[in-house]
Write a protein that binds this DNA or RNA. Structure first.
Length: 750
DNA sequence: GAGTTTGAAACT
DNA sequence: CAGTTTCAAACTC
């Protein structure tokens, strides 16, 4: 019954409510972190301040629903028992149906209410704002706004999950993240969403026990701590995923099945362990795993060293976690904490090796590898770079670095997959199921990939019987692990089978030392010489062994010469050669070619002995600010040569620069394709990398050099700036420099 | 998407 | 080294 007294109270309450809703009250709230009487109202007031403005800043017309759905899905799965959550007032709220504002309000309301007497959410929001402001939003590769957004989202998430309240329910976090996503709204590019989601995922690992809600703790401290921990957790997991042991002494290897439980653990666990762990089957964790794997993926794939990887693997298997695996880099100094950053650095320095077989340099490389592969990413034969990169000095550095790298990978991944990162992610986990489980429509996949981004970015195979351990396999031949885009079956070309891969490789090399060497050797002038007459390549550019075409007339990609964008030479045994790049007996086919083999061999050997030289060159290049350009290593030059065509369609200038870290890719992007009409879908420039391979003989006035200069087809075309700049450098460096020019043009989505 | 063609790789 | 087989990419329908 309503008594007069109660009515009076109601009136008072109402008036208070009005007061609180007033602009003045809101203003006051904004000015002071002091916890208001009614947390709920406060939070409501704060919300708009904290997030309302974001959307406008990062507004973009497209919001990736896919990501969102994924995000939701993931978390929902994480806690099926809580498809909905109830607000304190007992009203059931469907998180998925709430509009953004409602979600935000609910989220924050709950957050505030959940704190018994803790920090006002306001303080948290403010902190976040400050944090975000201070974040370094500059990203070398990734759009700065993207980084900002990520950081922002992360910060918000962290704040919500830890500083602003007990990290108890994933659902809540999810909602917040969702809300943020939407609030940030319209972030252009699907990648953003993925990045955001990923960033949030990372923090999902924040276990309550690590960052337990402590009201007595300074919000700032808590906040930063949470971020730090989150990063560490992410690193840990990523390290594990990548086959790296991060922490010592840990025994727990299980993946927590409870949302708030995740994190710890994963100490000595290897990828295998994780995968095998039944708990890991939990979709939630899988997602996390995948996300993290994505991180590793990119990193690893960029620079794998067969030899090194082998050693690394031993560590893993031994469980002797003692040393942090030398993952990505040959740099044994890499510590778990440094890993992410280092990886990044490595991206800069793809790897030095004898046979980096092209691929390494291909844009594909850059691309991500499926998680598994990611586990070791690309393999680069031969010694790896020992270049050391200074570890991050602060968590913040680590934070930004890792994300930068991560985001980059993500971007690439997404791009290459036609904007369907999810698919890949699912396959990433392929580590587990991988192709075997999803051998379905390899062709389909291939096409998709081809369409997606030219597919040039990465080696992708479709092996069914070779186990990807034969040269039939493009990935293997390229010296890289198979990756998610691959549709191979019973693939052994994976990090987990490193031993096998290495052994097989050795075997093959013992049979043919040049088996993994570049198939196409291109002279330094190849690029510029071609000029208008694309029908003939310079004499200096030829297929190592020559082709043996009988029916294709060397006019199809069946022909390795054609595929490699070079003319046939005297080495070819082809019949009815019509190679558009130069017929066997045409002007381009120099009778002196035979000497090639000899030189080539020489080069390879020299390269092997001259690793240190490369390192030095690379460092020099780095110092010159050419980080983004992969070092031209002899090995790298290798496979690429013929890669240009290989597989996929001609490289397009439009290819994202990110993806083209390899000299090859860069070259591809060079954009000269226009000079080459139809057949040569690819840009002969790619081959430039080749040069690297044979710098010595080219420079030494070898027969080939001579040939080049005298090539009848030769048409001097003023080289791009970069070329000119490089002209005075050693061949190896020259290559590196050359690739630079293309870089700009490769800007993603340009 | 399935089937065919092709030529390199692998094998004998 | 030559011939044959196997293989996977390229290609066609």
């Amino acid at each position: 019954m309503d008594t007069p007294e109660r009515s009076k109270n109601n009136q008072i309450a109402t008036s208070i409510g009005k007061f609180e809703d007033s602009p003045v009250f809101n203003f006051l709230n904004n000015l002071s972190p002091i916890k208001p009487v009614k947390p709920v109202h406060i939070t409501q007031t704060i919300n708009p301040l904290s997030f309302a403005s974001l959307p406008s800043v990062f507004s973009s017309p497209h919001l990736n629903s896919l990501r969102e759905s994924r995000f939701l899905r993931r978390h929902q799965l994480s806690d099926p028992s809580k498809p909905e959550f109830s607000s304190d007032d007992g009203n059931t709220v469907d998180a998925n149906n709430l509009n953004v504002d409602e979600q935000k309000e609910n989220m924050y309301s709950m957050a505030s209410e959940s704190e018994n007497a803790g920090e006002p959410s306001y303080g948290c929001s403010k902190l976040v704002v400050e944090f975000v402001k201070n974040l370094n939003c500059n990203s070398d590769i990734v759009d700065s706004s993207l980084s900002c957004l990520k950081a922002k989202n992360v910060a918000e998430y962290a704040c919500t999950s830890s500083a602003c309240g007990p990290f108890v329910e994933d659902q809540r976090s999810v909602n917040i993240s969702e809300a943020n996503l939407e609030g940030l709204g319209n972030i252009n590019q699907h990648n953003w969403n993925s990045l955001i989601a990923d960033a949030s995922d990372l923090f999902v690992f924040e276990p309550p026990n690590i960052v337990s809600y402590n009201k007595s703790v300074d919000p700032a401290t808590t906040f930063y701590r949470s971020i730090k921990n989150a990063i560490q957790n992410a690193q840990t997991l990523s390290a594990v995923v990548c086959g790296e042991r991060v922490r010592e002494g840990g025994e727990g290897e299980h993946m927590p099945s409870q949302p708030g439980e995740r994190t710890e653990i994963i100490e000595n666990a290897s990828i295998h362990d994780i995968v095998a762990d039944s708990s890991f089957s939990n979709s939630n964790q899988k997602m996390d795993y995948e996300n993290l794997s994505g991180i590793c993926r990119g990193m690893r794939r960029r620079c794998l060293v067969f030899e090194m990887s082998g050693a690394r693997r031993k560590h893993m298997e031994d469980g002797s976690a003692s040393d942090s695996p030398i993952l990505l880099t040959s740099d044994g100094n890499a510590s778990s904490n440094q890993q992410i950053v280092q990886t990044k650095s490595e991206s800069v320095l793809p790897g030095i090796g004898l046979h980096l077989n092209a691929l390494a340099a291909t844009p594909k490389d850059f691309k991500i590898v499926n998680h598994e592969s990611s586990a070791s990413g690309r393999l680069l034969l031969g010694p790896s770079s020992s270049t050391n990169f200074p570890p991050p000095t602060s968590s913040q550095d680590l934070f930004s670095n890792s994300f930068s790298d991560y985001s980059l990978e993500r971007e690439i991944d997404t791009f290459e997959n036609g904007g369907l990162p999810m698919d890949d992610l699912s396959q990433d986990s392929g580590f587990i199921a991988n192709e075997d489980i999803n051998p379905s429509s390899p062709k389909k996949r291939r096409r998709r990939l081809e369409q997606a981004g030219d597919g040039e970015s990465c080696k992708r195979c479709n092996c069914k019987k070779s186990k990807c351990l034969k040269l039939y396999c493009e990935c293997f031949a390229a010296g890289v692990y198979c990756v998610e885009p691959c549709a191979c079956i019973d693939c052994f070309n994976k990090p987990i089978h490193e031993d096998t891969v290495l052994a097989t490789r050795k075997q093959i090399e013992s049979r043919n030392p040049l088996a993994f060497a570049p198939k196409v050797i291109r002279g330094s002038e190849s690029v510029s010489e071609i000029g208008d007459d694309f029908t003939n390549t310079p004499a200096s550019a030829r297929h190592k062994r020559g082709c043996n075409c009988k029916k294709s007339g060397c006019l199809k990609k069946y022909c390795e010469c054609y595929q490699g964008g070079v003319g046939c030479s005297i080495n070819c045994r082809c019949e009815g050669c019509k190679n558009a790049f130069g017929k066997k007996d045409g002007p381009g086919a120099s009778g002196t070619e035979p000497e090639y083999e000899e030189d080539e061999m020489d080069i390879t050997e020299k390269a092997a002995l001259d690793i240190s030289l490369y390192k030095t060159a690379m460092q020099d290049d780095l110092e010159q600010g050419m980080e983004s350009v992969p070092p031209a290593t002899p090995s790298r030059a290798g496979r690429q040569q013929f890669q240009p065509f290989s597989k996929k369609r001609p490289p397009r200038v439009s290819f994202p620069s990110i993806c083209s870290y390899s000299g090859l890719s860069t070259t591809q992007g060079f954009g000269k394709s226009s000079l080459f009409p139809a057949p040569p879908k690819f840009n002969p420039h790619f081959e430039t990398v080749k040069e690297d391979e044979m710098p010595h003989f080219l420079e030494g006035g070898s027969p080939i050099s001579g040939i080049k200069s005298s090539s009848p087809n030769r048409k001097r075309v003023s080289p791009p700036q970069s070329f000119e700049v490089a002209s005075g450098l050693r061949s190896s460096r020259k290559l590196i420099l050359q690739s630079i020019p293309s870089f700009p043009s490769l800007a993603p989505n340009q």
